[in-house]
């Protein structure tokens, strides 16, 4: 399976990009945009921290991806449209990511859908939310969590939901 976003970052990763990620991590400031948010918020944070560096996200025809390692060790990957809007987020690591941060304006819908999912059959299982404007799939167990969230209506042309991973 070809993943346009993933491919691009591997081929274009630069030391500047790595440096920015490290700086963002160390300073523990809001290090990335939320789902539906745009790159300007990332850029705004970045400018406060490292004004002389270049843009961290690598642009591609259809999408780009930036990977941030949260201080707790959980890796969060943000998928951006060519215009710089975040259309998907994926995560993996020993601790649940900050869902408020990564879902932004989508958080309330996530929260109510998650509560609703819980009101179904009793028991513990992964979360699978499939709404027209929000898909969230979150799985794992203690010390090993993974998941992804995306807005199907924001997917750039030529990008499949499967690329958000």
């Amino acid at each position: 399976m070809k993943n346009p976003c993933r491919e691009k970052i591997y081929s274009n990763s630069s030391s500047a990009q790595i440096r920015i990620v490290l700086l963002l991590t160390f300073l523990s400031l809001p290090a990335f945009a939320s789902l539906g948010g745009d790159l300007s918020s990332v850029e705004s944070d970045r400018m406060k921290i490292a004004p002389s560096s270049t843009t961290s996200a690598v642009q591609h025809d259809s999408c780009s991806v930036q990977e941030i390692t949260e201080a707790s060790g959980t890796v969060v990957r943000e998928y951006l449209t060519p215009a710089g809007r975040v259309f998907g987020v994926a995560w993996q690591g020993p601790f649940t990511p900050d869902m408020h941060q990564i879902l932004g304006a989508y958080f309330d819908r996530y929260s109510s859908a998650a509560n609703e999912a819980r009101s179904g059959y009793l028991g513990h299982r992964p979360l699978d939310i499939r709404e027209p404007n929000l898909v969230v799939q979150s799985a794992g167990h203690m010390r090993a969590f993974s998941g992804r969230a995306y807005d199907p209506t924001l997917l750039p042309e030529g990008v499949s939901p499967n690329d958000v991973r």
Binding site: Q92, P126, G140, S146
Partner: peptide
């Protein structure tokens, strides 16, 4: 049984892909 991610998101692998043997 139930879904954990949706196929074929994990055909290429991916560290977030798992089988939860409940």
């Amino acid at each position: 049984a139930g879904p954990e991610q949706s196929m074929p998101a994990c055909v290429g692998g991916g560290t977030s892909c798992s089988f939860d043997w409940g």
